[in-house]
Design a protein around this nucleic acid. Structure first.
Lengths: 308, 308
DNA sequence: TGTTCTTATGCTCATGTAGAGCATGAACCA
DNA sequence: TGGTTCATGCTCTACATGAGCATAAGAACA
């Protein structure tokens, strides 16, 4: 980073690079998290053209053209510019990735564009079914990788890393660590992208699966302190359906009564007055999201020992 | 965002843009948060050159050259590419901003580079002194802006936004909302960058003050669930000094006993055995950070009604 | 027409954590 | 030597969170 004189700040000579957008567009349909793909193995991406006002504007325009649904919550994920990201002429590419939430469209606008079950690519992230846990298989292979480390120190580090990421050795599973898990599997050489084959799950082109893991981690984190789930729901829904959507994304089951308590005491929803019996069992009341609270709930709870 | 056929994903033709890095480098010295500036009115920035492996590598190299201190925690903030970000030839500029934590260097490597009190630019963010609160002055001007809205709906929105951002109308001040506060002041036309003059604080070139606010908000958020403060501390420190650093960044006072309880029960530090009486009053024990917990404490506490 | 299954919904309980305050210890300063 | 300033130990209370019991209200089935 060469430093120009202060007065000249905007005029430093710079090499030109190509800029592209990579989008992780997520929906939830019938408790299945879905992601928009190109040909089932790539995330939609494209050059960032100067006709757009901003990065977000470019993303929104494209997605809304594709899905015919407004794009709800949009969040910038990460910008990559590693050396191996190069266009044909060996030119640097800066890739700016975004996470977008929407509702699944029946018809998609362009050939090759399709919705896929997100867990098709990261199956170990889905722990909703306690019996079908993939942890044991992975744990074994990861353990082997840890033990294969050249020295004791590195072995200790690997073991500890695995235990934290995958919730082993009496630790709790933390759904937010999706990226750490993917990175650990990569480093352990268990995914096809890194030459392995032990880890289940469909690979994607380049580092798209990594970006997907980043998106999932970020989404799971956001879910906890901002009411973004509602961007994925139809206008009216039951609390059961809402919980289903959260569980789909979090990849774990939640305690039903406590979930309801949380939603209701925060006054996130209001009754429509109608009920539906489509869910089976006792008919459920229908709710709608109270858009008013959106601005408000941007606040998170403090964790510092507060005030004085 | 034009879509290429899937097989051709990396080869879409794209306009070329200039890429620059903007760095917010933060330190804390004697309970004063400090930020590295160029000429006191700009954040250090520079073109991203292809000699670097990655964005982070470029940033680290530059900062370490400047401050002769290793750069501790580094975090990507945000990437901008708005239409008004253009180089001389009307060419688009993609600006990638980073937050970096380090310790203040006595000597800086280059002319024009200097450390400044961060609150010089965002004075309303410092609420450590309960008497010197700037809220009243700002509140009045903001209220006027709200009432000047053309219709009732917009007035309501503005009032609510102000109340949330600045902790008015029986709401608590939330230190994490630094960015929302700056943006509100901007929209209300109270900062020089937006043509106003009511709001105190030194302006910066372009949108650098906005980026600084982004960094502060992010840092305050990170502080709560990851032990990043230690990147700003000398090897040995008292709990009082540690608390001083946190308070400097959070811009508020903390309850001393509770702060200590939190630090100790998380086993973040260990005693060195030595004490110091430099703090005045009863001599304080010296502590050092337990680096081992770094990896571990990357985990945050869940807020979903957990498991089942 | 019960019986059983399923989901919805209401309530209570135990535990842990965060905010707050009281009290004491140990140096320095006038 | 008493006042000041920090450091440090301990207790109390309110509230959030994880968990479980019990009941309601439809559908499927014998």
């Amino acid at each position: 980073m060469a430093l120009p004189p202060p007065a000249d700040l905007r005029r430093h000579p710079s090499e030109r690079v190509a800029a592209e957008l990579i989008a992780v567009i997520v929906a939830v349909t019938d408790s299945v998290p879905r992601v928009l793909t190109l040909g089932g193995a790539a995330l939609p991406s494209g050059p960032f053209a100067s006709e757009h006002r901003s990065l977000q504007a470019a993303l929104r325009a494209w997605v809304e053209h594709q899905t015919h649904h407004p794009l709800g919550h949009v969040e910038q994920l990460y910008t990559f510019a590693d050396r191996d990201r190069a266009a044909e002429a060996g030119e640097r590419v800066v890739s700016i990735s975004y996470l977008g939430l929407t509702r699944e469209a029946r018809a998609v606008g362009q050939a090759g564009v399709s919705w896929q079950d997100l867990y098709r690519y990261l199956p170990w992230e889905d722990r909703r079914d306690p019996d079908a846990t993939l942890a044991p298989v992975l744990a074994q292979a990861l353990q082997a990788w840890a033990e294969a480390a050249p020295d004791a120190m590195l072995r200790w580090e690997r073991r500890s890393r695995i235990a934290i990421a995958f919730g082993l050795e009496r630790r709790a599973w933390n759904e937010d660590l999706a990226l750490q898990r993917y990175e650990t599997l990569w480093e352990a050489g268990l995914v096809p992208e890194a030459g392995g084959s032990t880890a289940p799950g469909e690979p994607m082109v380049h580092d798209h699966r990594r970006i997907l893991a980043t998106a999932l981690a970020r989404l799971r984190g956001t879910l906890k302190y901002r009411p973004v789930v509602f961007e994925l729901m139809p206008p009216n829904f039951t609390l059961g359906q809402l919980q289903g959507a959260v569980e789909a994304l979090a990849g774990r089951r939640l305690h039903k009564q406590n979930f309801r308590r949380l939603i209701e005491q925060q006054e996130l929803v209001e009754e429509t007055g109608a009920v539906t019996s489509e869910t089976g069992g006792r008919p459920a009341r229908l709710f709608r999201f109270r858009r008013e609270v959106m601005a408000e709930r941007a606040v998170s709870g403090s964790k510092l020992p507060l005030a004085r």
